[in-house]
Simulated assay, not measured.
Amino acid sequence: MTATETRRTKAAIKEPAPASLSTRTLALDAGNYDLKFWDGNTHPRAIRSIRYQLPQGRDAVRYLDTSPLIELADTTRYHFGTQAYKYRRQQQTVIENKAELARLHLYACLEPWDGSSEFSLNLHVSTPEPSRTEQALRSQLMGIHEFKRNGTPFRVTVDRVSVEREGMGAYCYAQRLGLIPDNGYTVVIDIGGGTWLTRLVDAEGDVINENVMDRGGTYELATSISFDKRLADALGTTADPGIVMDGFKSAHAYADTGLSWSLWLEEYLDPWFRGIFQTVKAQYTPYMSRVTRFLVTGGGSHLITERLAGRKLFAMIPDPQFANVRGLYPLPEGLQLCMTTR
């Protein structure tokens, strides 16, 4: 978040509210591509992680639950999600520091609860490197927040913020699904929009080695494709990597233009895939004899599903986009299988 945005949003934070409010629990995985959130009911939800800050003199286009309009106490407005494409010069989280946007991302994901927009909240979030960003996340998220979402005034008191390593939610969820062996080491490979990361986890659930790559996620792959002349010449201009990222989930088509890179995707996908797994192998060579599972997850993992099918050591989580947020949400006491890994 810019310095100006930070000053504006500070007005939304006030003193803690009385403890008489009903308390809600929410898991939030604010990714570079999607903001995922889950309250333990129905299916996790996702909002495309782009936004547009509206000038005071401009009306917003239609807002939706999946593309909400956020208004802060000082009347500053941000339109999130796919509707932000209808403005010019959107801001994409994937090229920013998502930890600095934690407050705005929370507002985008908060919906009324049991018909009320005033409640207390226990929040479970993840970040690639808690040692670097946990304090900043807590300072942004704790306290009382007042804002409007899609025209509805909210007053939300965040009483508790639990911060976990990104990717370990997916490990917990995979453990619940029976995908993690009872012995040996598991290598978690979480391929996201802007970054990809790995965690080496032992049978007790302790992280004993890890690696966070600030680049190399699906945005890097999309950027490479966006500069290919076969796509750029057909469009008459350089393609938008953000729209290419959207195309990864829709038959590799560039929006509604009818253009596709599916016929030559392999030219880019193969070196991207090899680069990730060569790095993993180099990182964990001393431990390879004890690795009993490679767990591949994250919103970009669907791009390599076919390559890994049938490989004995590899496991893919169903619906991998939401694996981390499902694992972040706490199970009833006594049912949690994985250990806290701070």
Rank of each mutant, 00 (worst) to 15 (best):
107 Y>D: 02
326 R>F: 04
43 H>N: 12
305 T>M: 14
113 W>Y: 15
160 R>C: 01
212 V>K: 05
54 L>C: 05
287 Y>A: 12
286 P>K: 00
168 M>W: 09
211 N>W: 13
58 R>H: 03
265 L>C: 01
224 S>F: 08
300 G>S: 07
127 T>I: 14
21 L>H: 07
307 R>L: 13
80 F>P: 06
202 D>L: 08
13 I>R: 11
46 A>M: 12
253 A>L: 06
101 L>I: 04
131 S>E: 14
113 W>L: 11
222 A>R: 01
318 P>A: 02
259 L>E: 04
170 A>V: 03
146 E>T: 11
79 H>P: 00
2 T>F: 02
312 K>Q: 15
210 E>M: 13
18 P>W: 09
87 Y>N: 07
192 G>F: 07
43 H>A: 10
137 L>Q: 06
270 D>A: 11
103 R>K: 10
7 R>V: 05
133 T>L: 03
248 F>W: 01
271 P>R: 09
180 I>R: 03
10 K>S: 13
19 A>W: 12
173 Y>W: 15
148 K>M: 15
18 P>T: 12
209 N>R: 14
90 Q>P: 00
109 C>A: 15
98 K>C: 01
314 F>C: 04
246 D>V: 01
242 G>D: 14
296 V>E: 02
22 S>T: 13
143 G>F: 04
92 Q>I: 13
99 A>G: 06
114 D>S: 11
2 T>G: 13
82 T>H: 06
31 G>N: 01
242 G>I: 04
51 R>S: 10
252 H>G: 00
19 A>N: 13
51 R>H: 10
211 N>H: 15
210 E>A: 14
249 K>C: 04
247 G>F: 07
215 R>M: 14
107 Y>K: 02
336 Q>V: 10
20 S>W: 07
44 P>D: 10
202 D>F: 02
79 H>K: 03
317 I>H: 11
316 M>W: 07
137 L>Y: 11
75 T>G: 02
280 V>N: 03
304 I>K: 03
137 L>G: 01
242 G>Y: 09
229 K>W: 10
138 R>Q: 14
219 Y>R: 11
285 T>V: 15
198 T>H: 10
134 E>Q: 15
242 G>E: 13
279 T>K: 12
116 S>F: 01
105 H>V: 00
217 G>F: 08
143 G>C: 04
235 L>H: 05
60 A>L: 05
66 T>L: 12
296 V>S: 00
57 G>A: 12
342 R>Q: 12
170 A>G: 11
119 F>C: 03
235 L>Q: 04
4 T>V: 08
297 T>Y: 08
195 T>V: 02
205 G>Y: 03
132 R>G: 00
132 R>N: 08
231 L>Y: 02
147 F>R: 05
254 Y>N: 02
226 S>N: 03
74 D>K: 09
341 T>S: 15
8 R>W: 11
223 T>V: 00
8 R>V: 00
340 T>N: 13
21 L>Y: 08
332 P>H: 05
89 R>P: 00
135 Q>G: 07
76 T>R: 12
133 T>C: 03
45 R>I: 04
100 E>T: 14
9 T>N: 06
